[in-house]
C-alpha cells in the first residue's frame, strides 16, 4: 500500500512547494498588517479587519472565482502583470500559491496580531530611552517577542495552504504536475475506479502533515508565553 507512485509524489511535492512559497510571501505582509491592526486606529480599520478574515467564511469557490476575475489572463491585475512583468497566475502553480496564500492569510494574521498585542509596550519605551530608534525597537524588541506568534501563524498558514482545495481548483484547475496539489489529487483519485488505495495513501500523508503542523504551532505558542515571562 505504501509504494507511492510518481503522480502522487508530484502532488505531495507540489503541495509543499505551494505551501512554502505562499507562506514565505504572505508572512511579511501579514506581519505588517497585524502590526497596523494591533497598534493603530485608522479610518476603515474594521473594514480591513473584515476583509482579512473574509476568506475564512466566504465559500472557497467564490474566493477562487474572484481570483480568476482579478488575476486571470484577462483580469484587471493579471492582465497587467502578464503584459508588464511576464508573471502569469492562471493555470500555473504560482496561481495555486496565490490562492493558498489568500486562503491561509487570516490564519497567519491572527496569531501574529495577538502576539503583538500581548507585548508590554513599556518595554519598547525602555528600549528607546536606551538609544534604540523606532526601527531598532521593532527589530530588537517587538519582533523577537512576537516571533513565537509569527512562527505559530506561519505553521498554521502553511498547514492550511497545503490542504487548500476549493479556491485553488476554481482558480487554476487540476493539472497534474502543474496545479494538482494533494487535495485535488485525492479528489481525482476517489473519483477514479481503483483509485481508493492511492487516495488513501495521500489522505494519510495529509493527516500526518496537518497533525505535525498543529503540534508545532502549539509548541511555538507555549514558547511564546515563556519568552514573555523571561524564563
Amino acid at each position: 500500500m505504501f509504494d507511492i507512485s510518481t503522480p502522487e509524489w508530484m502532488a505531495v511535492l507540489l503541495s509543499l512547494k505551494v505551501g512554502v512559497v505562499a507562506t514565505l510571501v504572505a508572512t511579511p505582509i501579514a506581519i505588517a498588517l497585524a502590526w497596523a491592526l494591533a497598534r493603530y486606529e485608522f479610518w476603515g480599520k474594521s473594514i480591513v479587519d473584515a476583509a482579512v478574515h473574509l476568506p475564512l467564511v466566504l465559500p472557497p469557490v467564490v474566493t477562487g472565482y474572484l481570483l480568476l476575475l482579478t488575476f486571470g489572463k484577462r483580469g484587471l491585475v493579471g492582465g497587467w502583470l502578464d503584459d508588464h512583468l511576464g508573471i502569469v497566475f492562471a493555470f500555473r502553480w504560482t496561481g495555486a500559491a496565490l490562492a493558498c496564500g489568500v486562503m491561509s492569510f487570516p490564519l497567519l494574521v491572527r496569531p501574529i496580531r495577538l502576539s503583538i498585542e500581548a507585548i508590554d509596550r513599556r518595554l519598547e519605551q525602555a528600549a528607546s530611552t536606551l538609544g534604540a530608534s523606532p526601527w531598532k525597537v521593532f527589530a530588537t524588541v517587538t519582533l523577537p517577542l512576537a516571533l513565537p506568534g509569527i512562527l505559530a501563524g506561519m505553521v498554521l498558514g502553511f498547514a492550511k495552504a497545503i490542504g487548500e482545495f476549493g479556491a485553488t481548483i476554481t482558480f487554476v484547475s487540476n493539472i497534474p504536475g502543474e496545479t494538482q496539489t494533494i487535495s485535488s489529487a485525492i479528489y481525482s483519485l476517489i473519483q477514479t475506479p481503483d483509485g481508493d488505495a492511492a487516495g488513501m495513501r495521500l489522505v494519510i500523508i495529509s493527516i500526518a502533515m496537518s497533525m505535525a503542523a498543529l503540534i508545532a504551532s502549539e509548541v511555538f505558542t507555549r514558547r511564546a508565553t515563556r519568552r514573555l515571562h523571561g524564563i
Binding site: R122, L123, S128, T129, G131, S133, P134, P144, H229
Partner: peptide, 20 residues
C-alpha cells in the same frame, strides 16, 4: 530631540528588563 537621541537614562519602578 527624540527619546532615543537624548542620551538620558531612565530607570523605571518596574525594571522593564527585556524578557527575551
Amino acid at each position: 530631540v527624540a527619546v532615543h537621541r537624548r542620551r538620558i537614562g531612565y530607570v523605571f519602578q518596574d525594571a522593564r528588563l527585556f524578557p527575551h
